[in-house]
Design a protein around this nucleic acid. Structure first.
Lengths: 349, 349
DNA sequence: CAAGTTTTGAGGTGCGCAACTAAAATTCTG
DNA sequence: CAGAATTTTAGTTGCGCACCTCAAAACTTG
C-alpha cells in the first residue's frame, strides 16, 4: 500500500501563503491572479510558498468576492415532441442548479423551424445576456444573427443542431454523420448478409442534423453492405400520423423491406405501422432519441436499437461551457463531448 | 415566442427576503435553514417572500460561511491494466477539481485482489476521512470492514465492483449482469442465426463484476440464441500472455468458434491470437472497457464491439455522491447513474 | 394580571478572496 | 545626490451567508 502525501487537515489560505513568503496578502493576490507589478524575485518567493503549502484558491470565496453574476438565454423550440420536452425539462433543472451559482437561465420558446422568426428572436435578445444557447437552424439569416451576437461579445453555443460556418463559440451535441454511420453499421450487422431494401425516414431534409444522419447512414450502407439497397429518403415531418401512412406504404410496396432507419421523430407512427403489418419482428427498425415511447417499442421488440443523445448532459454541458467562457476558465473537453449512445433492450438506463 | 418571467438582474439576498417579509435577517435565516423556533405563520410569510423574489442561497457564500471541508480516500488497485490507469488518472483530475471546493482526495493504492490486505487497509484508514470510495472485493472481511466504516459514520461508496450485502452508501458503477446481457444480444444479433460455439473469457470468477457479466451473457444466449453454444468459461487472470495462449487453444480446438466474449482484461492477448489465426474477421469478438488498445482493435475490425463504463464519469460521480452526503444535499440520481456504453467503430469518442 | 414560555429582533463575527487606495521602496533624471 | 517618476508592497473593505448571543416582544397559562 502506498498513499499520496497527506495534506493539512485544513486548507492553506492566501494569508498562510503570505506569511510563509514574508509578503503581504495583496502581493500574493497579484501573483496568483497574474496581475503585474511584482518583482520577479518576489513572484518566485510567493510561488515557492504556494507550492510548499499546496495552496489552491477557494473557488467559493473567489466567486463571492468577485460578485459577478451571469445571465443566459436558452432558445428552444416551442414544438413538443418528446425529445424537446425532455430537453426543456433538463434545461429547467440546469437552471435551478445554476441559480445557486449566480447564474440565471431564461428559457425562450420559439418556432425554431422558421428561420426568420428564429433569427428575429436572436436579434432582439436583451443585451443583458452574456450567453445564449440555441437549437439552431442552418440558414443564412440565423447564421448572421449568431455572428452578430458573437460580435457583440455574447457567447453563443449551438445546441443539438449546429451552424458550422457561424462564429458560435461551440457546438454542444452529437456528431450527426457519425450517428448515421453508427445506425448503418448496426443495420448492416443485424441483417448480416441478407438481401433486400432499407428505408430511411427523416423529419425534414432542411434540418441539418437529419441530413447529416442520413448522409452518414448511406455512406456506410453503400460502401460496406452491398446486399442492402437504400430506398429514397422519405420526409415524415416529425409527424406520427403522416409517418404512419408513409410506413404503411413502404411495407405494402416493398415485400423485401428488411430495415427502417428513422433519423427524426414520428416514431409512434412507425411503430403503429410495423405492428399492424405483422412484420415488426422481421424488419429491423433503428431510430433516434430515447423517450418514453421509443423505450416501449424497444422493450417490446418492435424497435431494435435506439441511437441517443442525452438531453441532460447537453443542457448541463451548454451551461458549463457558457459559464466557463464568462469566467475565462478552461473547459474539460472530454467531459463536454456529447456521446452517441446506443441503447438495446438490455442496457436501457 | 414566450419567455419565463424575467428575474432581477442581480439576485435577491437574504436581506431582500427579510425586507420583503417584514421580518429580521435572523428569522429568515432560521426559516431557510430549517431551524426551529419560528411560528408557522411567520414561516409562511418568509416562504412567500422567498418564492416571490426567487431567492436561492448563494452556494459560494454559504460554503464560505460554513467553512467545512472534506476529506475522502479513494482506494484503488495497484495493478496497472489500462482501465485502472485511466481510472486513476480521472480520480486525480477529480481531486484537482475538488481541491477548489474544500474537498481533498487521497488516492490509496492497494492490492485489491487480496481480501485481507484490502480489508486491512480499510480498517486502518485514518479517521480523518469523512468518505471512502473503494473498488471492492465481495468477501466477508471486506464487507465487515465496509460495515465498520459505515458504523463509524464514514460514507462508503463502492466503485466499479459492488458489495451488495454491505452497508455501503451507494454503488457507483454499471449494472454488470445487464452489461453481460448487452454483450450477448450484440453477439446473437451479429451472428444472426449462424450455428456454432461462443467462448467466454473472464479475468477471474472470484471477481464479482466478471461473474455477473458472464451470468448475464449466458442468460440471454441460452434463452434467445439456441443456435449458439457457449463453451465453459475460461479464466485469463487479466493477463495478456496467458489469455493469448488460451485463445490460441480455443481457436485450434473449435473450428466452429463464432464468437468470443471477454468480460475482463487481457485483450491484447486475444487480439494477437485472433490476428495470428487469420480468423479475426470471421469471429465476432466483444469485449469490455475502451482503452487505447481496445480502441485500436475496434478500429482495425478485429474487435466488433466494446462495452464500456466511463471512468471519468465514475470518478466524478463517486466524488459528488460523497460530497452530497457530507453536505446533506440530495443527489440527482439520473446524473449519477453510470451508463453501459456500447462503442462500435462509428461512435467512438 | 403575574409569571412563565415561546418567538422575534438587532447586532456581531468571520469565512477567503478580489479589488481598491495609500504608502513605501526602488529606480531614474539632471 | 536631491527630487521626481515609477514600481512594488501594505492595509482596507465588502461580497452573502451561517452561526452566535442577548434582549425585547409576543403569546400562553394559572
Amino acid at each position: 500500500m502506498s498513499s499520496d502525501a497527506a495534506q493539512p487537515a485544513v486548507r492553506a489560505t492566501l494569508e498562510d501563503v503570505a506569511r510563509a513568503a514574508g509578503v503581504s496578502l495583496a502581493t500574493v493576490d497579484r501573483v496568483v491572479n497574474r496581475r503585474e507589478g511584482v518583482r520577479a524575485k518576489t513572484v518566485a518567493r510567493v510561488e515557492a510558498a504556494v507550492a510548499k503549502l499546496g495552496y489552491h484558491a477557494d473557488v467559493a470565496a473567489a466567486r463571492l468576492a468577485r460578485g459577478q453574476s451571469f445571465r443566459f438565454a436558452f432558445v428552444l423550440p416551442s414544438g413538443s415532441n418528446s425529445f424537446m420536452t425532455n430537453l426543456t425539462e433538463q434545461v429547467q433543472r440546469t437552471a435551478d442548479w445554476l441559480a445557486g451559482q449566480r447564474g440565471f437561465i431564461d428559457i425562450v420558446h420559439v418556432d425554431v423551424f422558421d428561420p426568420d422568426v428564429l433569427a428575429g428572436v436572436l436579434e432582439d435578445l436583451s443585451p443583458a445576456y452574456q450567453g445564449v444557447a440555441v437549437i439552431a437552424l442552418d440558414h443564412p439569416r440565423v447564421r448572421a444573427a449568431i455572428d452578430e451576437l458573437t460580435g457583440r461579445g455574447v457567447a453563443v453555443v449551438t445546441l443539438v443542431s449546429d451552424v458550422p460556418s457561424s462564429r458560435r463559440l461551440r457546438y454542444v451535441g452529437i456528431d450527426n454523420p457519425a450517428a448515421g454511420r453508427t445506425a448503418s453499421t448496426l443495420m448492416g450487422r443485424f441483417l448480416a448478409g441478407r438481401e433486400g431494401t432499407v428505408a430511411v425516414i427523416a423529419g425534414s431534409l432542411s434540418l441539418r442534423d437529419h441530413t447529416e444522419r442520413q448522409f452518414g447512414f448511406h455512406q456506410i450502407l453503400s460502401s460496406e453492405y452491398p446486399n442492402l439497397r437504400a430506398l429514397p429518403v422519405i420526409e415524415g415531418r416529425d409527424d406520427s400520423a403522416r409517418t404512419r401512412e408513409l410506413t404503411l406504404g413502404l411495407l405494402a410496396r416493398h415485400a423485401d423491406l428488411r430495415g427502417i432507419y428513422c433519423c427524426g421523430a414520428g416514431n409512434r407512427g412507425i411503430a403503429d405501422a410495423l405492428e399492424a403489418s405483422g412484420r415488426a419482428r422481421e424488419v429491423v427498425w433503428i431510430t433516434h432519441e430515447l423517450t418514453q415511447h421509443t423505450r416501449r417499442f424497444l422493450v417490446r421488440g418492435t424497435c431494435d436499437a435506439i441511437i441517443n443523445q442525452d438531453p441532460g448532459h447537453e443542457a448541463r454541458s451548454a451551461a458549463r461551457v457558457l459559464l466557463a467562457h464568462c469566467m475565462e476558465e478552461p473547459i474539460s473537453h472530454d467531459q463536454e463531448r456529447i456521446r452517441i449512445d446506443i441503447f438495446l433492450r438490455d442496457n436501457l438506463p
